[in-house]
Nucleic acid binder design. Structure first.
Lengths: 131, 131
DNA sequence: CTCGTATTCAACCGAATGGTTGATCAAGGA
DNA sequence: TCCTTGATCAACCATTCGGTTGAATACGAG
């Protein structure tokens, strides 16, 4: 497994990380795990308790979250506590907000254009039009 | 897939919507489409142009985005322009930020605890127990 | 050392995903 | 009208995904 938590991994693209992170959150069990982990670390069996799936299935879910960079694991005797890594979550909101804001800005630009057209109907418009 | 194209589906849970929205963003082609659409609406062929996949594949991607509530479609002659719906994006950032902030708050609480412990260093040390 | 607990590995299964090609439908433009 | 363009439908294929059961590993307590 080539995945590390360090950002010096040149073979891992931003796209790959976003792929894995969004896919990891596209499952209700994994989202509930994230919700649980936001309150603090938990072991595999603790994370499995609210669900009626096997601990093996939960273990797989944790691996998905880990490869998405959303959680890390430590060691405590036989237990492998899982910790939320909020940094990956920030990356996701950053991506979404980028395009949310661009879209918002486009609307404002359109509003401005419409306002200008209605208040200055006589102004000549030297800009090219594609139609 | 039980879902129809109609938005009157009252049996659609928040979980279902988040499932579809996160899953829709877990694909680089669909993310690039969202990025494109943040600049304004586009037809299927326009959206297909940057990629070397068939327009049928792009049409499927658009259906995925539509069922996730991320885009809507209108009609313009033979074309079916696709429009970004930023509201679904807001829902995603809202979900993520909820747990990001809870996690942040937990850290602050821990900081306070550690500070208190260091100022009272002679406190007796009972055996640790989990949960 | 042996036993019990916590976790992972391995193999397997059914369903969903992302892609293809070929056919079909809808709407203009000549 | 006929033809072209834009898009979807349908069937198919390989891969991935989420789940299972059964075996194996790691660690601590007796």
């Amino acid at each position: 497994m080539v995945v590390g938590s360090e950002p010096d991994n040149a073979s891992e693209s931003e796209d790959d990380r976003l792929d894995r992170a969004f896919a990891a959150l596209a499952d209700p069990i994994r989202r509930r795990m994230i919700a649980r982990l936001s309150r603090g670390p938990a072991s595999v069996t603790e994370l499995a308790e609210p669900f009626r799936v096997s601990t093996q299935a939960v273990s797989k879910h944790i691996q998905v979250l880990e490869q998405a960079g959303l959680v890390t694991r430590t060691r405590d005797a036989q237990r492998r506590p899982v910790h939320l890594d909020a940094h990956a979550l920030e990356e996701l909101t950053a991506w979404i907000d980028t395009y949310r804001l661009i879209h918002e800005q486009q609307f404002r630009r359109l509003d401005g254009l419409l306002a200008a057209l209605s208040t200055i109907p006589q102004e000549p418009n030297p800009r090219r039009r594609s139609t």
